[in-house]
Simulated assay, not measured.
Amino acid sequence: MKTIIDIGEDSVVTHAAGLVAADLDHKKVMMSIESGKYYGLDSIGSRIWELIGKQHTVRELVLELVKEYDVDEVTCRRDLLAFLNKLNDQGLIDIV
């Protein structure tokens, strides 16, 4: 059972082990080897997935996404945390 961890601005986020991922039409598709479940990410989710391929804090992710997309920092942080919590609930990321 996955331990629930609060994700905050200083949390370091990275891919969980045991995932196979590929690009498909500018989107990311993934399969969990452990559960056999498939997942798909839209273009923004795919960009976040790319960024967390290397360990980054949530704060660093927000700063990068604000530079790349037309979004204010508050909205970006809120939406990013919601997205990361969904990934965490599915066991797709690790919080270091």
Rank of each mutant, 00 (worst) to 15 (best):
I52H: 06
K28I: 13
V96I: 07
I4H: 10
V96A: 15
D94P: 01
G45R: 00
G8E: 07
T57L: 01
M1G: 14
R78C: 06
L65S: 11
D94I: 03
H56C: 02
Y39R: 12
M30R: 01
E50F: 13
A22S: 04
I48H: 00
I4V: 08
A16V: 12
I7G: 01
V29E: 12
R59N: 15
Y69W: 13
Y38H: 08
L19Q: 10
G18P: 05
C76M: 12
S32G: 09
K27T: 07
E73R: 15
E64P: 03
H15T: 14
L80C: 02
I5T: 14
V96R: 10
D6F: 09
V29R: 07
D89N: 08
V71T: 07
G36R: 14
M31H: 06
E64H: 08
H15E: 11
L41Q: 10
N85M: 09
A17D: 11
V58A: 11
S46R: 08
M1W: 07
D25V: 02
E73T: 10
D25T: 01
D72Y: 08
E64Y: 09
V62L: 06
Q55Y: 04
I4E: 11
E64V: 07
M30G: 03
M30T: 03
A82R: 14
L61E: 05
H26Y: 11
K2N: 09
F83R: 08
G45D: 01
D94V: 05
D79Y: 09
D89F: 09
W49L: 08
K28M: 12
